[in-house]
Computed example of a mutant assay.
Amino acid sequence: MLKTFVYKAALFIILPLPFAFGLHHAITQGLLLSRNKYLGTWNDIRSSKIKSKIYISGSSRARVQFSTNIIDSMLHTNSYNLGMEGYQFSMQDYRLKMALKYNPKPKCIVQVLDFFSLHDRSDLFEYQQFLPYLSDSSIIGATQQYKGRFNWFQIHVPLYRYNSEAFLIKEGINNYIHQRPTVIEKINKNYAPQDKKWDGKFEEFKAAHPRGEFAIVDYKAKAKFLSFLMMCQAKNIKLILVYPPEYSEFQSIIRNRKEIIDLYTRYANDFNIPFLDYSNHPLSRSRRYFYNSQHLNKEGAEIFTQQFCRDLTTHLDSATLQSLIVSPNSK
């Protein structure tokens, strides 16, 4: 009796496994075709689709404020925006290294900075963007420092990682069946302009921090940043550090803001890197060009990108500028 029960129980457990593995494979392979906001850029990186001369690296302040259309048009080049929403330099550095691993080396990297670049968040933000790649040990390593990091079951048990992810399951299956993405986001090489007006949340933030706030500099992130500077130097990649405009009233809230800017300035001087600081740019004085205190809206981003391109030409020698030029068909 016991033997029969064990046999039936084993069949009940084992028989669905091929189906589970097959469905898991189909979802994952379908998501590798995705163009949604979580996966589009990672898929471009890992499928070696980025042939760009200029990388824009940074947080959401890179993603929503640096127009690849304008950069390509003004500099006659091919740029790609690697900006990651919600993550500071440590994760930005991982994405950049993956881009360099799978794609041709760019001529120039524009690293976008802000007051919290050298800190690190505690939680695994928008974890969905990593789910199809959990067979890659480097992804596991890059996410292990965050709360909510992936557990053994998510990594090894078929379908477990997609639990409660109905949107990704549906998209993955559709993509796999049709062998093309079913979700197309209207973004150009990860640039995601925000056609929004001032949202008013700054007043709430200001009221909640009457004494201001200190920007924390994490020593691990600082060490990674220094390693990044040395890597660009060793690989002969032209590096530009940029602090984009932020709303002027916000700047006084960060009590150690001057020390943060001074730190970036010192790094730039030590490595002989241009540091373009737009803290006092005229855009910073008008809410018209922002949708919140730290992010330019579409109108502001396009004005700023044009200014950035003009300034970039004054910080690059003629040989470097010439090396950035590509034919229109290769963009």
Rank of each mutant, 00 (worst) to 15 (best):
K147Y: 12
F304Q: 00
G148M: 10
S122C: 08
E204C: 09
R95C: 07
S67W: 01
L17K: 11
S48T: 06
L23V: 09
F167G: 15
S79K: 03
S227P: 05
E171C: 01
Y80N: 03
N280D: 14
G300F: 01
N81C: 11
Y191D: 04
N151T: 15
K97C: 10
Q92H: 09
S34N: 03
D277S: 10
Q306Y: 10
D136H: 09
T305S: 07
Y55G: 02
Y146Q: 05
S279I: 13
Q307S: 10
F225E: 00
F125A: 07
A223H: 10
D195N: 15
P181E: 05
I56D: 05
M91S: 02
K206C: 05
S318P: 03
D44F: 00
N280P: 09
T320S: 11
N103T: 10
Y289T: 02
L32P: 02
Y87L: 05
N280C: 14
D93W: 04
Y289W: 06
W198V: 00
I13K: 12
S59Q: 09
A215V: 10
I54T: 00
D136W: 09
C309H: 06
Q129S: 15
K105M: 10
K53W: 05
G141M: 10
P282L: 08
N103E: 11
K53S: 02
Q306A: 12
N175S: 06
K224L: 14
A166V: 09
T143Q: 04
V217H: 08
I216C: 12
K189V: 04
Y289P: 00
N272W: 11
A215L: 12
T314V: 13
Y94G: 06
R255C: 10
A268V: 02
A268R: 04
R285V: 12
F290V: 01
S318R: 11
H76G: 02
P181A: 07
K37P: 07
E85T: 04
R211W: 15
D199Q: 03
T305N: 03
G141C: 09
S67L: 08
Y219S: 14
K51T: 14
L168F: 13
F225A: 01
A221M: 12
N43I: 04
Y38W: 14
F275R: 00
L134K: 03
A268D: 00
S279G: 15
Y247F: 08
Y162F: 13
K3N: 12
F115E: 13
A268N: 03
V183F: 07
I70S: 03
P210R: 12
L118F: 08
S90P: 13
S135Q: 14
L23Q: 03
K238P: 05
S73A: 08
S48I: 05
F271Y: 13
L82K: 06
F12C: 13
N269E: 14
P245T: 04
I70R: 04
P244A: 02
E302C: 03
N269Y: 12
